[in-house]
Computed example of a mutant assay.
Amino acid sequence: MKTIQTSEIVKGMILSKDIFSHENVLFLSRGSILNEEHRKTLISLGIKYIDIFTDPEGNPFPEASRKNQEMLREKQFEKTYWEAVDTTEAILNRLTRTRKFDEKEMVNTIQNLIPLTLTAGTNLLNLLHKIKNRNESIFTHLIGVSIFSIMIGKWLNKDEPRLIELGMAGIIHDLGKCQIPSIILNKPGPLSLKDYQHVQKHSLYGFQLALESNIRKTSILSAILQHHERVDGSGYPYGITANHIDETAKIVMVADIFEALLANRPYRQPVNPFYAVEEIKAMAYNKLDPLIATTFIYRIADYFIGSSVALNNGEVGEVISLDRLQPSAPMVRVQDRIYDLRLEPNLKIIKDVVPPKG
Rank of each mutant, 00 (worst) to 15 (best):
residue 55 D to T: 14
residue 344 E to P: 03
residue 282 A to I: 05
residue 323 D to V: 06
residue 6 T to Q: 03
residue 263 A to V: 06
residue 228 H to G: 07
residue 244 H to Y: 14
residue 103 E to V: 00
residue 174 D to V: 02
residue 227 H to Y: 08
residue 274 F to L: 11
residue 206 G to W: 09
residue 241 T to K: 15
residue 248 T to S: 13
residue 338 I to Q: 10
residue 274 F to S: 04
residue 78 E to K: 11
residue 83 E to N: 12
residue 211 L to Y: 05
residue 208 Q to E: 14
residue 14 I to A: 00
residue 302 D to K: 14
residue 130 K to N: 12
residue 67 K to P: 00
residue 190 P to F: 04
residue 155 W to M: 09
residue 290 P to Y: 10
residue 149 S to P: 08
residue 128 L to R: 11
residue 152 I to L: 02
residue 268 R to G: 01
residue 286 N to W: 09
residue 195 D to A: 14
residue 68 N to E: 12
residue 355 P to Y: 10
residue 283 M to S: 03
residue 73 R to Y: 12
residue 229 E to K: 02
residue 103 E to Y: 05
residue 351 K to I: 05
residue 101 F to E: 00
residue 199 V to D: 09
residue 289 D to V: 02
residue 9 I to Y: 01
residue 215 I to Q: 12
residue 216 R to V: 15
residue 38 H to S: 09
residue 234 S to Q: 13
residue 100 K to N: 05
residue 247 E to T: 14
residue 197 Q to D: 07
residue 100 K to I: 08
residue 97 R to D: 11
residue 215 I to A: 12
residue 322 L to Y: 02
residue 53 F to D: 02
residue 123 N to S: 13
residue 114 I to E: 02
residue 202 H to I: 07
residue 203 S to F: 10
residue 208 Q to A: 09
residue 62 P to L: 04
residue 310 A to L: 15
residue 261 L to G: 04
residue 180 I to S: 07
residue 353 V to T: 10
residue 230 R to K: 15
residue 35 N to H: 09
residue 191 L to S: 01
residue 140 T to R: 03
residue 276 A to D: 01
residue 265 R to P: 05
residue 233 G to F: 10
residue 28 L to Q: 06
residue 274 F to N: 08
residue 12 G to A: 04
residue 48 K to P: 00
residue 172 I to N: 04
residue 93 N to K: 14
residue 243 N to Y: 12
residue 311 L to P: 02
residue 151 M to L: 15
residue 282 A to C: 03
residue 157 N to T: 11
residue 159 D to G: 04
residue 175 L to Q: 03
residue 117 T to A: 09
residue 90 A to C: 01
residue 278 E to V: 13
residue 233 G to T: 09
residue 358 G to A: 05
residue 218 T to V: 12
residue 63 E to A: 08
residue 276 A to F: 06
residue 140 T to N: 04
